[in-house]
Design a protein around this nucleic acid. Structure first.
Lengths: 320, 320
DNA sequence: ACTCAAGCATAACTAGACGTGATAGTTCAT
DNA sequence: ATGAACTATCACGTCTAGTTATGCTTGAGT
């Protein structure tokens, strides 16, 4: 005989002890009278003892019923506390979201995202970590981040997003062009569109690991291997190197949007043109986590145009 | 969206937080793995938020999951306490039974009953109140007693047991003869059987209200109205009155069995013979109250023969 | 004593919850 | 690469837990 009461039984017994009748308890708890009557008989059968006995035209709690009623207060208070905490989390009156994003986003997308989140959900705690896409994905896998904001080059065959597709959900947000940066001294500095093949003999300045991979892949398609003279993660440094005539470079549009262009460099559209995709990545099913849902809602609502980003085509914006 | 968790969800979440995986939780809780997996998805749908997310080949609790797990400890401890108290009541390691019985039983049936109960259930608290049948029934109705031990005369048309038949359950236990008590000085003192009609002109000594009613009904059947000179509830007083030659009396066998017969009285079988029934009365459904069940089990096991009682015919021993 | 209203129990029915085993897909480690 | 561990999903049967409709008992007020 299982003497473990269920929550409804506790609620019923408590309400009966407070209001005296089953019918009134049913009204208060929002059930029909037979529902409670039957639940009680079932519960009593399960428990193997009586909780109520008829008394006149009402009922009276037995000793066991009174015992349950007194415990019910404790149990239901605790349950209500749990419920309230869940409601808070669901309503974002509390909760935490941990965001990881690549460095360039730190000065563009992320500040705006966090400001909007703070404004709309003042009680939501937001943590932010800067990390290149592979590291951001690792943070996600380790449970150290809830949302990773990353980018992909469509040509990248080693894209970490593809390698373990089942382990996370990737949703594209924007595409941005990759632009060519030439020093004014360069022979093609006055052209609008510049063929990459025409730069086969130039010195190249490479960005972060991923961007460098992209550069290599792109040049490979054009039939040459670029000579890479300098490497740096820092977009501003790249620009300065170019302005001193130390080489040419490809940079994503977003990297430029938060910088003022130094003297002596010019922006061009490379031929063939190229672009990268900015996306967010979450744990599968994490849309059910309110803080995450709020964050990605905010993200998709962000207007990328101010940074030269284009919304990813809606028709193709599907989770992977 | 109802954010109230149910007990199983709390148990599951707690166990997952302690043991890390759903499968292990299922083993511990005695379910199949799909059962918990499905229960979790249902719970998460109900709650409107995620409690677990996949992580590698296991799962990890979300913020909400961890919140629930911590509340689960409180809730489940309280539920377990309630369960333990019910188990105590069910196993009669605690509990109370309140018994009401008519005065004559106080010195015969009841002491033996209570002694047996105490012996078999040392932790059961037994309360006893002496009350004539109508009062005992009232105590039962008021919830002031759990078991009433009463008697009925079959001729009694005003028997309170009959008046509100639905309000309680009556189970006959024994029948006992009603005997005639005559003083030695009486002309019929040497006869075995004595016709009541032959005592039409004697002075009568009446017992309690119910017994007096019985006497009147009986004499009425025989065609005379007895002259009642003395009344007393006390059977010993009745006997002493008779021994002094103050009258004749009818007494139930049980009343005599605990007394030593005074000098100068003799016991006879009245004609027509008469008997009363000793029974217990409980609230309907009260057999599900362990302390009551134990008491009536004890009662039906009592051997009435030592007091001159006869077991009520088994075939007719049905609850009314 | 009769009648009415309050309250509980029961019946018949339905929808959904809740188990099960079988199976497939991931992930991690050897 | 292979296997072990873990979770998710499917198909299925059973039982739970509600519903409305209805009848019975009780207490109160004519």
């Amino acid at each position: 005989m299982d003497t473990t009461p269920d929550l409804l039984t506790l609620r019923i017994v408590r309400t009966i002890s407070e209001h005296g009748t089953i019918s009134e308890a049913a009204r208060i708890l929002g059930y029909s009278q037979p529902a409670l009557s039957q639940h009680l008989t079932r519960a009593q059968t399960r428990l193997g003892l009586a909780l109520v006995v008829r008394a006149g035209r009402g009922v009276r709690l037995t000793e066991a019923g009174r015992a349950l009623a007194s415990h019910a207060v404790t149990v239901l208070n605790a349950v209500d506390a749990a419920s309230a905490e869940l409601a808070e989390l669901a309503g974002l009156s509390s909760g935490t979201v941990r965001i990881a994003a690549f460095p360039t986003a730190s000065s563009t997308l992320v500040p705006r995202l966090i400001r909007q989140l703070r404004q709309q959900h003042p009680n939501l705690t937001v943590n932010y970590v800067e990390a290149e896409p592979p590291q951001a994905l690792q943070l996600l896998r380790d449970g150290a981040a809830d949302v990773a904001i990353t980018f992909s080059y469509p040509e990248d065959r080693a894209d970490p997003h593809l390698s373990r597709d089942g382990g996370h959900t990737t949703v594209p947000l924007f595409t941005e062009p990759v632009v060519l940066v030439l020093p004014d001294s360069h022979a093609l500095a006055t052209a609008d569109d510049v063929g990459l093949a025409d730069l086969a003999n130039d010195a190249w300045i490479a960005g972060c690991t991923l961007c460098r991979g992209h550069l290599l892949a792109l040049c490979n398609l054009e039939g040459f291997a670029p000579e890479i003279g300098l490497e740096t993660d820092n977009a501003l440094a790249v620009l300065n190197f170019v302005s001193r005539g130390l080489g040419v470079a490809l940079l994503p549009q977003l990297a430029l949007s938060s910088l003022t262009l130094p003297e002596g460099v010019s922006i061009h559209s490379p031929q063939p043109s190229s672009e990268r995709t900015i996306q967010y990545v979450i744990q599968p099913g994490a849309t059910r986590i309110p803080s995450v849902a709020a964050t990605i809602a905010m993200l998709t609502a962000l207007d990328g145009a101010s940074w030269g980003l284009r919304d990813y085509p809606e028709s193709e914006r599907t989770a992977r």
